[in-house]
Amino acid sequence: MNKYIKTVLLSTALLCFGAGSVSAAQFSDAKSGKELTAKQLAQKLAKYDVVFFGEYHDQSEIHKSEIDLLEALHKIKGEKLVLSMEMFEVDNQEKLDSFLAGQLNEADFMATSRPWPNYQTDYAPLVNFAKEQNMPVVAANVPRFLAAHVAKNNASAAGIEEQYKKWLPKATYAPEGAYKDKFYAQMNSPEAPMKMPSARLAAVYAAQCLKDDKMAESIAAFSDEHKNMQVLHINGCFHSDAHLGTAQKLEALRPELKVAVITPLERKQKGEKPAGDFVVWFDRK
């Protein structure tokens, strides 16, 4: 992987990374401000078809809240609940299924499924709970090497080998408006590792949208095949805040689905308007 692609991946990762934290999080209703336990939130979410849980990928406090909510939702939904994850890519769905079915041991699963560096500490609890409960897990994301190709090649999928094209979304578009404005502002922030010329920034935005489109299609496809099942989708909050990104793409694909968004906010940000329907509170340290 060349230096440019590494920088692109680091840049997009910064959209959803913060710093470590250890204390217990809590939820609240964004409209009323009422604090909620995981059990209370699960009860409110029971009426939704798809729940986006937006996270900062390196916040352990939020990860603990994810497993708390998954367990609480399972008590209500039981076999009608499915976990969907940005952290697994569609070409590894068979490996994920084999691991969940006990046909692939953890060592081989880890060696072949391209898990994220913090998988064991932050995402294994979710996957292992799903395994214990015979719960499906959707590997929702586009393979990262395809997103990197689009970012490197001026937003074009030209040159992708035929055998890999089946992993691309059926349709992809990079919309103008709030999502693009937010993306460009973030990528031009002081925290960005490099300043990109406009053409390259447009290509990186196209790669971001490629991920959104594929995750939206993955959720839509599962919902089409499994009516009356609730999907809890875990992703970086940039993909779903304000019902933009993946949430926006899903709502365009399947407007009949009732979608809720959980967004993370630091406790010191109380008083700020949340970018979701519900809030998970945490302390950034």
Rank of each mutant, 00 (worst) to 15 (best):
L253Y: 04
K34T: 11
R254T: 14
N153I: 07
E217A: 09
Q163P: 05
L104D: 02
P264F: 02
R114M: 11
Q59F: 10
V142T: 04
V22L: 10
D97V: 10
Q26Y: 06
I219N: 03
K258H: 06
Q43H: 10
E94V: 11
S32F: 07
V142Q: 00
I67P: 00
L83T: 01
F27T: 01
F238H: 03
K273M: 15
Q59H: 07
C16V: 12
A139R: 00
K75I: 15
P125Y: 00
H239R: 15
R114E: 12
N188F: 06
F52G: 11
H233T: 10
V22C: 14
A252W: 03
D91L: 07
R144H: 05
L36P: 02
L126M: 02
E132H: 08
S223P: 07
P143V: 08
V261F: 05
K95G: 09
Y4G: 01
V142N: 00
N141Q: 06
K64T: 06
L81G: 07
L250M: 08
K64S: 03
V50F: 00
T246M: 06
G18A: 11
A42G: 05
G33Y: 09
I5W: 07
G245H: 08
H243I: 09
E89I: 12
Q40A: 12
N235C: 10
G78I: 08
E79M: 14
E106D: 04
S240T: 09
E89F: 08
Q248H: 09
E251C: 10
Q230M: 14
Q59V: 10
A38I: 05
Y119A: 15
M215R: 02
Y4P: 05
D108W: 13
M110R: 03
K258S: 09
I62H: 00
G54I: 10
L36W: 01
T121N: 13
D181L: 11
A178S: 09
M229K: 11
A178F: 07
A139E: 04
T246I: 11
I76K: 09
P125V: 05
N228Q: 13
I67Q: 01
M187K: 01
Y173V: 09
K47Q: 15
P169K: 08
V22G: 13
S11T: 10
K77A: 11
R254W: 02
A178L: 08
R200F: 02
A275S: 12
M229S: 11
G177D: 08
L96R: 02
E161D: 13
L104N: 04
P193D: 03
L100Y: 00
L81K: 08
K31I: 11
T263I: 02
E161F: 02
K31E: 07
P175C: 05
D49L: 00
K227G: 14
S11Q: 04
V231A: 07
K195E: 03
A199G: 14
W167A: 06
Q269P: 06
